[in-house]
Design a protein around this nucleic acid. Structure first.
Length: 208
DNA sequence: TGCCAGGCCCTCTTTAGGGCCTT
């Protein structure tokens, strides 16, 4: 898989986990991802994985993923090896990417796998592009952008698909408002880090 | 013993604090 450094060929991923911090012993329990090419979802990946520890009642309730389901799943090591093959060196997107990147790095390090893609964050971008949204939680952004939803949040594939749709809505919005339709990943990364006051200037510099 | 994330972002800021977002 070649590294295509453009915003129109991406892997959008989402982890469900035992908790918030791999540094505190938390592990992944599900990975979901879609590959987005030219604005279309071309591939999907979703697997549960057995973290080797019981998950809390909170996580069972929050995700709908039970300990019984995880006992039947392949180990994190086996599943993450398959996921590493899936994502290749594509650039990556996640909602609140700092969270998913910590788990991706932690789980891949355990199996000696690495990736060459770059990460960007739909949460950071939405705070700049959808500044009128009263919340930037994934579910709230789906409503804000009038994206059709069955409400199945907190499962990895569903959340990655919703993140992909929010992502495409933001790119559409940039096209409509600024006339910028061909957005390199380098610009995405700049946008996600730029002060809000600089967003107009940055995008207008790419227009025309 | 008791506690336990971490990065971003705003503001009553910068010698800091607290809310937002992810599970």
């Amino acid at each position: 898989m070649s590294n295509i450094s453009r915003a129109d060929s991406l892997v959008i991923l989402d982890f469900e986990t035992t908790g918030l911090s791999p540094n505190m012993g938390d592990r992944a329990i599900e990975i979901g991802a879609v590959r987005l090419v030219n604005g279309e979802i071309t591939e999907r990946f979703q697997e549960l994985m057995n973290p080797g520890q019981r998950v809390s009642a909170f996580i069972e309730d929050y995700t709908g993923i039970s300990n019984d389901m995880l006992v039947e799943a392949d180990s994190c090591e086996v599943v993450m090896a398959r996921f590493a093959d899936f994502m290749g060196d594509d650039n990556l997107i996640a909602h609140n990417a700092s969270f998913d990147k910590r788990f991706l790095d932690s789980e891949l390090e355990r199996i000696g796998r690495y990736y060459n893609g770059e990460f960007s964050c739909s949460l950071l971008l939405s705070r700049r592009i959808f500044q009128d949204a009263h919340s930037h939680k994934l579910g709230e952004l789906v409503r804000f952008a009038n994206i059709e939803s069955s409400g199945g949040f907190h499962r990895a594939l569903y959340d990655s698909e919703m993140t992909a749709k929010v992502w495409m809505k933001m790119l559409e919005d940039i096209g409509e408002r600024y006339g910028v339709f061909d957005i390199p990943f380098e610009l995405i990364k700049k946008l996600a880090k730029a002060p809000k006051k600089d967003i107009d200037k940055l995008l207008l510099s790419y227009a025309g």
